[in-house]
Every structure is written in C-alpha cells, then in structure tokens.
Design a protein around this nucleic acid. Structure first.
Lengths: 369, 369
DNA sequence: CTGTTAGCGCTTTCAC
DNA sequence: GTGAAAGCGCTAACAG
C-alpha cells in the first residue's frame, strides 16, 4: 500500500499505542496509569509508563476520551450580555463553580437579541454539553419557543424570579427587593413617592421589580411615581433619566431596576446639575461591584450572585435538585439613598453590607420647591 | 449474550444507524444528508432521511464527530479577570469573532493568580482546543514558565505590547498611549507635571505605560510626578488615589494606567471633596464603556478592542499570521482632563471619539495654592 | 498485575 | 446515487 506523496511523514500524533510500545507494556496499562485506575499497576511498570509518556510527550486525545466516556466535561452558559457587570459577575461565579467540579465553561452572549439567542442555544445544544445554564434575554419566555427542548441536556434557567413549568429555575426575589428599596426611600427618607426606571428586555413580560415597586407604593397609599422604560443599558438609563428629570414636579427619588440603568441615571442627574441624594435620591438593583465606585456610591439591592451561581451549576450537574430556587436579596446601604455611610466607609474595611444609621437623613414628606 | 439485569431498556441515544434503518438507506447516506456532502444524494432520498431524523429526533454525536474530524471547533480564552470591563469587552469581542467562524469559546479566569493561571492553562491545553488566546496576568512572563509549551495548539498572547520570542502576540501601543495622555495634560491643559497610578500585575515586568509616562515628562524636561503602584482593581486605584492626594503639594493631574484604577481614583478624589478636573485632572487608559458614565466622564486612551480581538482569533485560526501585531491607540477626549465636551455631548450622538475644543480649558503652568 | 479486544458514533474512501 | 467498511484514540470488561 503506497502512501500518497512522499512528502514529510505526516506528523501523526502519538497515541497510547506508541507509549505502550515504548514502555513495553500493553495499551491497557497505559490507560490505567494515566487514569489512576481502574486496575492497579505495579509501581515499577507505572514508572516506566510515566517515563515513556514524558519522553514521547504523549497527550491523551480529549475527543476520543469524550466519545468513549460520553462526556467532554463541558457546560454552557448563555446570557444576554457579559458587558453588563451583573452577568459578568454571575458568569465569573459560575465559572469558578464549574472549574471546581472539573468542568470547563463555554460561554455565549446573545446581545439580548432573541434571534441570536435561539441560534446560540441550538448550537450549544448540538454540542451536547453536560449542562446548560441560560439567562433568557428579557426574562423567561411567555410561550415556549425553546429550541432543542427535546434534547436530554440538563438545563437551568437563571435570573428567573418565577418558576417555569417543566424546567429548573434559579432566581432572586426581585419583588421583595423592589419592596425593600421603595420602602427604604419612603420610610427612612420620607419621600412622598418614588419614580422608577424599568429595563425592558427582549421579551414582553412584566418584571417583578415593577410590580414590587407598585405594590410598595400602594401599600402605603402613595401614588405611583412616574415610570420610564429603558433598554437594559447605561445609555437606556441615561435617556430614561433625562425623561424623568424633565418631569414637573421632578421626582425626589428614583428606583432603578438595575445597576447599569442607575449608572446612566446618575449621569443624567449630574449633567442636570442635580445633587444626589439631596435633589434626587437613587436606589438601584443588582449589587454589582462598580456601584461602590460611582459617585455617590449607590445604595442597591444585592442579589446573592455567588450562591445563585452555585445553585445553578449544582442544578445542571445533579438535576435531582428542586425545580425552582428563589434566593433572598438584601439592601446594600450606601449614599445615593440619603444614608450616611458608617465611619468605616473605607472599602478596605471589607464589610459588604455594613449597617448604617440613617437618622439625620430623614426628611418629612418634604415639599418640592 | 444476556444483558445484565432486565430493568428499563437503557435509553440508548439514537444514532445514524437508527436513522438509516428507519429511512431504509445506508449509514453513509445519512451522513451525506446531515453534512450536505461530500457526495450528492437524490432529493427524494434526502427527504426520507430528513424525515427520519425529525421523527426519531436524531442528533449527531458531537464527540464522535470531533474524534473523527480531529477538532471540536472550540477555542479557549484565558484572562486574568472578566469582571474588569477591559477583559469583559475583549472577551465579548473574541466571542463574537469566534462565533462567526463557527467556533465556540471556552473561557477561564485566573483571578490574576499565577498558580491558578498555570493550572487553567494546563487544563485548556489538555482539552486540545483549536486555538488558545491568553492574556497573562501581569504581562508576558519574563522567563518562559509556559505550561504545555510542547503542545501543538496554536496560541496567541494578547494584551502584550511587546513581542514574545517564538510566540504570536497581539497588543496595543501602550507606550504611545501614555505619551498621548501625558502630553495632552501638559500641552493642552498646562499642567506642570503629571502623577501616575500604575497597576501592578502578578509578574514583575515594567509596563510600557509607565515608561511612556516617564518619557513624556522627560521629553519636555518636567520632573516625574509622584508614582503610586496599585493592584489592578478599583480598590487598588482608590488606595493609590488616597496616597497621591495626600501628597503635598497635591498633584494637579494624574494618569491612571487603566480605567478600573481610574474609577477608584475618582472615588478617592470625590471623597476628598476635590473637584475634577479643576482641582485634579484625570486621564485614564483602556477606553472601556463605563468610563463614559463616570462623573465626570473620563478622558481615556482607547485600545481598539474589536480589532485586536479579530486579530487574535485570526492568529490562532490561521497561524500563518505575523508574529507580533501592534495596534495604535487614540485619546478619547471627555471631561476629566479639563476639556469641554462638544455641544452634542449626548451619548446618543453615537460619535465615539468626538473631537473637542479645549481652548478655554487651558491653564498656564498654574501655581498650586 | 498485565494483555487482548470490543466497541463509542462518526466521516469518508472505495466499490458498485 | 448508494452501500460497506475502515478507522479516529480511548476505556474497561474479560481473560490470563
């Protein structure tokens, strides 16, 4: 049998056959040594094999291994946009969690585009990963346009405050978070009402933060403050902020449905020459790191990202988990709401959710000028 | 041959054998249909096969395919920390570029820990991806402690302003960027000298931004402003900022070696009750999105992330590329340096690097009070 | 303790 | 236009 062409002898990668031959053992033994089992190997033999591996520079073929084992040790994550710090931090936490379990993470951004999202999801499913973690752009789908639903890959939907029938879900209690934020502004800082900047995603679902905001206001018989919808970006927050600040009377307090939005709002307020929190108080949602470095630092509803990430990975790795896992949120008090940070305001102090004394910040149902 | 146990009939996944049988064709034809080649198939037959696929819910086994083809269509990205907007935006751009080429992206964060970095790199190499893009924590290694260097995976080192012998590299002209930043502060805004906050990574290499800053000052016979080293985090920038602001005389202008650092510095300045840019001007480095939403918006040296990402992916996919690719940077003028933004300051305007008229911002070698 | 060997599911060459 | 069959490199059951 003649070889095609007589060029360079095709640099065929070395396989365990080569190693076995070199070490003078069988292929099985090579495997036992590489995998530390499943059968024992005499120390001397093992050493010979290890040396052969080193000398030859043998590297097991990952794809062959994956075929045989039926798994490549990969999980996939589909999110709207990792340039949003919330998803960036979430993805990072998921990656850490996966790595700890020996799984690598494949990441895909939909850019909040439902068409792209569907395409990426299909691709991910086709790759037959060991698990799939999905944060739907704009919340869980109302209908079930769930590509590859038939596939057997365990999946969990994150950033989903509500259960999705027939699916595992992980989410934070957004309704309660909105309640806490609005109540804080009213009860502690004496605002008459609270405006809201609500992010609008790719899907037309009513978000729990919006209902939470509304419910908090109703509970104390206050009128709804103005509500501005915005794209889930800094620019969206900026534009919505301009809209809100142009209203007369101007709102004295705003609840932003995400940190990203709050950044935009902050810029709009600064440009308008407003002082925060005196002219306008702001409470945000997510609790991402950059909020600590805004000016003023943002009071924000913290989602327990690390815990949720752990739950999400656990869910796909061991699908025996509960169908819906809801996590509590807490209010991270900083300055944008009108509170004074504790003396040890220094971020060096490390305390994440430092309690604070808001006494002198109180204002009684103040009149607007 | 008896089967072990008589329990449920092991839900064996359907393979092309099942499809072939169902459609009454050979296994080869199934393959031809699925892959659109390499041999032609009669339309009628193809339809039958497609129907069988649909009915049976057949999904080609990705691992088997990868074994046969010798590739799984995966590339890996190893970065210090995607919660740094610079790497987040870089990763996103790389992902887009890969997706476009039908490759999926596996991502790993070292957290700037060299031990973790080495471990992750080994894992990535073992997975035999089609390419590897690496941003070393703290710059390219001085020595060559490059795990898995023997492996044949094409690799490219990004965020590397200097070539690394024997490797492909992609980087921005950091030296020139620092030059531009410092010159702007001196030439346009009349600062006597410029201080610097320099990020210090995991490796002890002198960064081109530091030499650029120094060179710019020397070129016009100015004394070096004070230099503060910091961890490459917001907190690092904050602490270094406090240090710098406590110096007497207090610097009137600071160049921060990354946007992340500048955020911290900004906070330190605000807490000190300083007005920016009047009391202290700031120019940053990277040009990430959040800098547009700081207060005041940051003037920053923009790295061409999208272009570099494209170059990096191209490099690993087609290793015939040049060894070292250096990209130019440009100064994104905003307010923190003392310039007035153009009338259309509205980010809606879309113009990324809007030119600006810095006339009235000029100050002549002003005295410090 | 070690060796032989049967597949995992796919792609593709080669014959028909 | 279609089918048969040879592997890709590995793991692990089974036999020695």
């Amino acid at each position: 049998m003649t070889r095609t062409g007589g060029g360079k002898p095709a640099p065929r990668a070395i396989t365990r056959v080569d190693v076995a031959r070199y070490a003078g053992v069988s292929e099985a033994v090579v495997s036992y040594v590489v995998n530390n089992g499943p059968r024992p190997v005499a120390p001397a033999t093992a050493d010979r094999v290890r040396e052969a591996i080193a000398v030859l520079g043998y590297q097991p073929n990952a794809n062959a291994r994956a075929l045989k084992l039926g798994t490549a040790g990969l999980i996939g994550l589909l999110v709207p946009d990792t340039s949003n710090p919330f998803f960036a931090e979430y993805a990072l936490a998921i990656e850490r969690e996966s790595t700890q379990r020996g799984l690598a993470l494949l990441i895909a951004n939909s850019g909040s585009d439902m068409t792209v999202e569907a395409a990426l999801l299909t691709d991910l499913v086709d790759r037959q990963l060991d698990g799939l973690i999905v944060a739907w752009a704009g919340g869980p789908p109302v209908e079930q346009p769930m590509p590859g639903a038939a596939s057997a890959i365990p999946r969990v939907f994150i950033d989903s405050a509500m259960p999705v029938p027939g699916n595992m879900t992980v989410g934070a209690d957004k309704h309660d978070g909105a309640l806490q934020a609005v109540r804080h502004l009213i009860d502690v800082h004496g605002h008459e009402t609270v405006a809201m900047v609500m992010g609008r995603g790719a899907r037309a679902v009513t978000d729990e933060r919006e209902t939470g905001w509304r419910d908090a206001l109703r509970a104390v018989d206050r009128p709804d403050g103005p509500l501005a919808y915005a794209a889930f970006t800094r620019l969206g927050g900026y534009l919505a902020g301009q809209e809100l600040l142009a209203a007369r009377p101007r709102p004295t307090a705003v609840f932003a449905s995400s940190d990203l939005l709050a950044m935009g709002l902050l810029r709009a307020a600064h440009e308008a020459g407003l002082s925060i929190p005196d002219d306008i108080a702001i409470v945000s949602f997510d609790g991402t790191q950059p909020t600590e470095y805004c000016w003023p630092p943002l009071t924000t509803v913290r989602q327990p990202i690390t815990e949720m990430a752990a739950a999400a990975v656990a869910a796909v790795v061991d699908p025996a988990t509960a169908a819906h896992q809801l996590f509590p949120v807490d209010l991270l008090i900083r300055r944008s709401c009108g509170c004074t940070e504790p003396a040890t305001t220094d971020p060096t102090a490390g305390a994440v959710a430092a309690p604070t004394s808001p006494q002198q910040a109180t204002r009684k149902a103040r009149k607007r000028s």
